[in-house]
Write a protein that binds this DNA or RNA. Sequence first.
DNA 1: TCTGGGGTCCTAGGGCGA
DNA 2: TCTGTCGCCCTAGGACCC
Length: 427
Amino acid sequence: MFCFKHYIYFMFALVDCNNFYASCERVFNPSLQHKPIVILSNNDGCIISRSDEAKELGIPMGAPIFKYRKLLNTHNVQILSSNYSLYGDMSSRVMSILKQFTPDIQVYSIDESFLKLDGFENYDLTNYGVIIKDRILKWTGIPTCVGIAPTKALSKVANKIARKYPVETNGVYVIDSEIKITNALKWTKIKDIWGIGSKLSNRLSMKGCKNAYDFTQLPESWVKSNMSVVESRLQRDLLGIPTLNLEVQKSKKSIATTRTFEKPLFDIESIKERISTFSFVSGEKLRRQKSHCHMIIILLRSNSFREDLKQHYATKAISLPYPTNSSLVLSNYAIKAIESVFKKGIAYKKAGIILTGLVPSNNYQLNIFDWENSNHQPLMNAIDKINYKFSNKIKLANQDLKKTWKMKQDYLSPNYTTNLQDIIKVK
DNA sequence: TCTGGGGTCCTAGGGCGA
DNA sequence: TCTGTCGCCCTAGGACCC
């Protein structure tokens, strides 16, 4: 099934930053080197990034911190709240370096990118990977691993091998022969295949698949009918047939702002205030990408982990009479939606809004019967400019002007690269 | 007591017009 | 005018990613 002629044309490189959040913290605080570190989610709730030393202690990804507090204390694990200003800035530095190596790049997430290496037939790709890795480390202090292969899914596998065997591979692994593909697939456990999550992994295990190689040997027709076209494409990609392409940067198709509350909320007024704030923030994101939206979805839920409490989970989608990016309009509709689903006596723990049906601001269908107040656009522009200059001084009337609520971030590091006050001073 | 957030894509099922 | 079929669109929900 696999055809090596594709090699003549191009290869994919996946460059992935090692333990990205922990590595960012270490760049500016070298005392964290060689120590176990964990980074916490918003509200300091879950562990979302771990250094290798923390992984070795058996601390799992996504674990709630309160369950591991004792272990963390015993081993003197360094705890940090997530500092997205820092990580975002470090990420853009890494990505700008990667763009020097090829114009064909897909920034896949905050810490990894696919590079299409087209016309590199005469290059020593292992050596090229080492150059990429070394330059990022030298210029940003962030360690990376590089996986190179004829397809995206295989470059993911190659990257995992490089990460697993740093001494043997020097952090770079190239899959460039049929035997390497077969061996790599047999080495990859079902649950570690990119695109196969826990549900599908269980189903495939029941079917007798132990590794990625077994998955690729399943009949395509069975995969299509029992799973979906997504897994069928993945199967081909794993076999070395380029099926998943480099995706160009597009405008977002949805914009979400959701938050877990520090304490459960029982009263609708507090929830309405939060929803108003989420609408305001989402409107800003919408205007930044120069879009309008057709639809708002609100969500409101109690704490699903507290089985002893009465549960309620509600979502409500509202089609807007006209596309808008006015925070005032978004807030009004979102609040009405919250009023329609709110139930008394429930301890609500999380709320949010999702904007979908996004269309470009300069090209959308008007409605003959309903239209936006023409004052909104200049008002929003003015608010955005003032908030950019003076850091969020203007709010909606139904937001909490004193901002009495605050996200829990007890272990926050300074914004070393994005705030003048926090720049490291050399004495 | 304390359990994240922001995305994408796909499928199924219903409504609806040709 | 009524009915069946097809395909498109919309929506909710699920699964996945980092």
